[in-house]
Simulated scan of single mutants.
Amino acid sequence: MSQRPGLTFSHIGIFVTDIERQSAFYRDTLQFTQTDRGYLDGPNGPIELVFLSRDPDEHHQIVMVSGRPQNIDFNVINQISMRTDSLRTLQDFHRQLLAAPVTEITPVSHGNALSVYFKDPEGNRVEIYFNTPWYVSQPCRIPADLERPEDELMAWVESHTRTLPGFQPRSEWREEMAVRMARDADRV
């Protein structure tokens, strides 16, 4: 079974304070395409929406909605995560982020993934990651040097991952999860 039938995650919507700055960041730095833009009537007047996607099969993967208050004490978004197609892509994005209007750029290894975390222009935490071929028990967070050559970086990840609890090839972990998810789906 490749995924559970009936429900597939598609997109996220976030309220923003400065829709121009936020949508420009996601378009220019993270290379999303604006697929639509418009207004709806909201409870306190018109709200603006910007739809963004990197996948032509998805009208939008992120929708930004105006109306987020300027001063809030707590950001309810823990993180917005996006998977890269290769380690090189992750490293390229890391270099681009170093010159972008973002803060708290933090490259880490989770054992099962290499990630770069950062705060977008409005302080939402974003993760860009690349899956490794291994699994380890989570949570796991170890600082990583993404400036290493790809082969050295992967050798380092494998070396430290083999010492962590739960280590196994990702393929074995995936098989276990497929069985567990099928069993869970049968209980419904």
Rank of each mutant, 00 (worst) to 15 (best):
L7I: 15
L7V: 15
F9H: 08
S10P: 00
S10H: 14
H11T: 11
I12E: 10
I12R: 09
G13W: 00
I14M: 12
F15C: 04
V16Q: 06
V16N: 07
T17K: 11
I19Y: 02
I19P: 02
R21W: 01
Q22L: 15
S23G: 05
F25A: 10
F25G: 09
Y26R: 09
Y26W: 14
R27Y: 02
R27P: 07
R27T: 13
R27H: 07
T29N: 11
Q31T: 07
Q31S: 08
Q31P: 00
F32S: 03
T35A: 09
T35I: 09
D36M: 14
D36E: 13
R37F: 02
R37Q: 13
Y39K: 13
Y39M: 13
Y39T: 15
Y39E: 13
Y39L: 11
Y39C: 06
L40N: 06
D41W: 01
D41E: 14
D41H: 02
D41R: 03
D41C: 00
G42M: 01
P43M: 12
P43R: 13
N44V: 03
N44K: 04
N44H: 08
G45D: 05
P46I: 01
P46T: 04
I47C: 01
L49A: 10
L49C: 12
L49R: 10
V50R: 05
V50Y: 08
F51R: 09
F51Y: 15
F51S: 11
S53E: 00
R54S: 11
R54G: 07
D55N: 15
D57L: 15
H59A: 09
H59E: 06
H59N: 07
Q61P: 04
Q61V: 06
I62H: 01
V63M: 13
M64H: 05
M64I: 12
M64G: 05
S66L: 02
S66M: 05
P69W: 05
Q70C: 03
Q70Y: 10
Q70G: 04
I72K: 00
I72C: 00
I72W: 01
I72H: 04
D73N: 11
F74V: 10
F74W: 12
N75I: 15
V76K: 03
I77T: 08
I80D: 02
S81H: 03
S81V: 07
M82H: 05
M82R: 01
M82A: 04
M82V: 07
T84H: 04
T84W: 06
D85Y: 08
D85T: 15
S86G: 14
R88V: 14
T89N: 11
T89G: 07
T89R: 13
L90Y: 01
Q91Y: 04
Q91T: 06
D92N: 12
F93S: 01
F93I: 11
H94D: 05
H94Y: 14
R95M: 06
L97Q: 02
L97V: 04
L98Y: 01
L98M: 13
A99L: 08
V102Y: 06
E104R: 07
I105H: 09
T106C: 06
T106H: 07
T106N: 12
P107S: 00
P107A: 01
S109N: 07
S109M: 02
G111H: 09
G111F: 10
N112M: 11
N112D: 12
L114A: 08
L114S: 10
S115Y: 01
V116D: 01
V116R: 04
V116G: 05
K119C: 13
D120F: 10
P121K: 12
P121V: 12
P121I: 11
